[in-house]
Simulated scan of single mutants.
Amino acid sequence: MKEMPLEKRKITSSRLILGCSGFTNHFNKNAYTKEELLKAEKAVDAALATGITMFDCSDSYCMGKAEMMFGEILSSNSNLRENIIIQSKCGSYYTAEKNIKYYDLSKKYILNSVDEILKRLNTEYLDILIIPGADPLMEVEEISETFDKLIDLGKVKHFGVSNMNTEQIKYLNSYCKESIIVNQNTGMNINFSDGIIEYCNLKDIQIQAYLSLENGIYDGNIVENISEVDFQAKRLLEKVAKEKETTLEVIVLGWLMKHPAMIQPVLRTINTDVIQNCRAAIKQAKEMNKEEWYELYNVFIAKRNF
């Protein structure tokens, strides 16, 4: 059978990733509750039972609280860390007061961020560190030095990026000793026609689809005030899911995983039923024919260009 790029590198065989950003929705300095922690633990247990052994974190998820919660889960299970893959991200900022999104990929910031991430996660290393690709002020020489330092210290094993195009990855890789192994894109915004997928395949770079279920729109929840294009996409998914006697999330994930690039979706949910349902997505990917795939493709492309 065809292998994912990460599987080729002997890193993981987990076709899905559980994203930890949904552990709590409190973007403030208030402490998370025991009830929230229990729900997160159940989500992790459901993921492991479903065969998901890879987890996506970030220093920005819920102001660091998602990593703290995952760290508590790790601490309560001494055998868990060695049997899972953890990736985290740093470098993105948002200031609500000025409504400005900006980036900091300086050596000092990344090194400090990784230390704080490891502390919150209660682990000595990250399997993968991901940095954003949208920073126009990116200094690749400095990033390369930072990556080398983190490898030497044993704090990070591998590196990835988010939303980088082909030339940006080439540029970064030309300076870094450790090749980029992940390119994470946002859900249905993956571009199938600009060459990035082909380049990633050529270089064994894992493409990950973050927010694959579009923040709950495609996992069967009732979401108010969605756009017309989202409404049309959801109607089609409901029709297909009914015909195949399965759920919306299974169809969406199956559609993504059908692509020969072996796209690896990231689930942002703590709904244990949804997580368990996703096991069927691999089977759905195998069974989906080209006509069915393109019917969904046309809707999702319309969504991306909306």
Score class of each variant (00 low, 15 high):
N165H: 14
T272Y: 11
W293G: 03
E295F: 04
M4Q: 11
L48N: 07
M288N: 07
N305V: 14
R120E: 03
L80F: 13
V240D: 02
I52H: 11
T246K: 04
A281K: 02
V161F: 05
F192E: 01
L121F: 00
E214D: 14
C62E: 13
S174G: 06
N112D: 15
I52P: 14
P260R: 03
L236G: 10
K283I: 15
V114H: 00
I190H: 06
A46P: 05
V299Q: 08
I282P: 04
I181F: 13
M164L: 00
N201A: 01
Y93V: 01
G154R: 12
K290M: 15
T272V: 12
W255Q: 07
G160M: 07
K108E: 02
I207M: 04
L256N: 14
V250Q: 00
N298A: 14
E238W: 00
C200T: 06
I85K: 05
F23T: 02
M188N: 12
K107S: 07
K242A: 11
S14I: 04
F231A: 10
K107C: 03
D230Y: 09
K303D: 08
V44S: 07
E3Y: 15
Q168C: 03
T269R: 04
L237Y: 05
L248K: 07
E82K: 15
I169T: 03
V223R: 04
E295V: 08
Q184P: 02
P5L: 01
K258A: 11
I301M: 14
L18K: 01
C176I: 05
L267G: 05
N305P: 09
S179T: 09
K157C: 00
Y297V: 06
I73V: 08
N28I: 09
E243M: 02
C57M: 15
S76W: 04
W293T: 13
I110A: 03
A280S: 11
G154M: 03
E141S: 05
S174P: 00
Q184E: 13
P260N: 13
I100P: 00
I217M: 13
V140D: 12
W255Y: 12
G133K: 00
N173H: 09
